[in-house]
């Protein structure tokens, strides 16, 4: 006991001696008032500014529809969002195909609830510098290449799968190892700037970039589009501690968006959200297992 007291006194006085009083820690803990705040997140697959604008609008809309406080929590990393979802720090997330599968593997009761019509038949595009004159996927051999994020479905998983189908080994057949740029926007920017000759990304991001003139199609263009697969969707967490009707309310709110919510839908490049279910992503899971991303 005496030793303990001495030890405590020692720790207490350390601050005075070394000039480092650590006195803010003991401050009274604030009562958690965030119990009924719904936190939503999205994989950071595009420009952060665009993402926080669209997700902020979604938060406001859901708040108005459900009466809950809704807050958008940005995240820098795909895996970080999955981890946060697993920890229950995010109740509703806009996932890609692969991250959705990863998340639902970690939270088995989570449900995929809504998607855009285009997500039923999603595509990746392979882009290249125009001057290279690539015609088919097999022409990509010997060029330098970048994926998007390693956790991305349309930026990594499916492009890698279709490369494999074409008999191209991503680790051997490119000029150097493939790079992981981190996001779709960065992929086309890197190819346009010349840092990489070719890359693969999400078709929707590419179309938006072209439509908004963010990319110069005289320098870089699509030379191959993949077959269709399921991709982006909203996944809802188990919502423990929330009223039982909340899950339905949120689902309804998402599915009932129409021209009144045009700004939001525009940001998501769609005209509505439709229903989806966990089973739709079994094919993605199979590919991920085949490639070794999911064990």
């Amino acid at each position: 006991m005496k030793k303990l007291v001495s030890f405590l006194a020692f720790v207490l006085l350390l601050g005075l001696l070394s000039g480092c009083a650590e006195d803010k820690e003991e401050a009274v803990e604030q009562e958690e008032t965030t119990k009924q705040t719904l936190k939503i997140g999205a994989i950071p697959d595009q420009d952060v500014s665009v993402l926080s604008r669209s997700m902020g609008e979604v938060a406001d809309y859901l708040s108005a529809e459900t009466g809950l406080e809704v807050e958008y929590v940005p995240s820098v990393d795909y895996a970080a969002l999955v981890t946060a979802f697993e920890r229950g720090e995010i109740q509703l997330a806009w996932f890609g195909g692969l991250t959705g599968v990863q998340a639902r593997n970690r939270v088995p009761d989570a449900e995929a609830i809504a998607q855009r019509p285009r997500d039923e038949e999603f595509h990746s595009v392979f882009i290249a510098q125009k001057e290279l004159g690539l015609k088919s996927l097999s022409d990509i051999k010997g060029k330098s290449f970048t994926f998007g994020s390693e956790s991305s479905t349309s930026g990594h998983l499916m492009p890698r799968y279709y490369l494999m189908e074409e008999g191209i080994n991503a680790e051997q057949d490119f000029n150097g190892n493939p790079s992981y740029s981190g996001s779709h926007d960065k992929t086309y920017k890197l190819v346009e700037s010349g840092a990489f000759q070719t890359g693969a990304l999400n078709e929707a991001v590419w179309e938006a970039a072209v439509a908004e003139g963010k990319v110069d199609t005289s320098k870089v263009d699509v030379f191959y589009t993949t077959p269709a697969y399921y991709d982006y969707h909203w996944t809802i967490n188990t919502l423990e501690g929330y009223d039982s009707g909340v899950k339905q309310k949120i689902t309804d709110a998402l599915l009932s968006m129409d021209s009144e919510q045009q700004t939001i839908l525009d940001l998501f490049q769609t005209d509505k959200f439709i229903e989806t279910k966990n089973e739709n992503y079994e094919a993605i899971e199979k590919v991920a297992k085949q490639i070794g991303i999911i064990k």
Partner: peptide, 10 residues
């Protein structure tokens, strides 16, 4: 005591 001696440094 230890406490007194440490206090004394202040």
């Amino acid at each position: 005591s230890l406490v007194k001696s440490i206090l004394s440094l202040v």
